[in-house]
Amino acid sequence: MNDPKHGMTLIVKTVTRITVWLIILYGIYLILHGHLTPGGGFGGGVIIALAFLNVLLAYGRSFTKNWLNLKFMEDIEAASATLFLFMGILGIALGGRFLTNFLGPGKPFTLFSAGHIPILNILIGVKVGMCLFLVVWVLAALRTGEGGEE
């Protein structure tokens, strides 16, 4: 894990190891409270992508490749897009129109309110987080010409 040949110095690696989970937690908080406070699925997803990017920059490619399951990330990225469509079709089935808020408003200012908005926020957060990290991963491979070695 602390291979000095890859990534940055020990100081950067230690700080990253401590802070990366806090960053991910903040992203999850923004996603879950998207219907109550500023933030939402998009901002929270970008924070999660930046946390993974932080690990990629600090520890290097080979460690990140072992740490993250990239195939699984691709899968849940595609699955969240499909689930977004599925929520829309569920709106047809239960509410009569595409993407209808079929769950009802609920009690405002509580976590479980606003119908399908939190669910869609979670789907968008997962989608954006995985998508942006994968795009950066591929772009970095193009720059260093490592695409063929994986």
């Binding site: 406070t37 939402g40 408003p105 405002p108």
Partner: peptide, 13 residues
């Protein structure tokens, strides 16, 4: 919509 954050209400509802 029941969403306290109006921006979320607009973009997701």
């Amino acid at each position: 919509t029941g969403a306290a954050n109006l921006v979320s209400a607009v973009i997701l509802d």
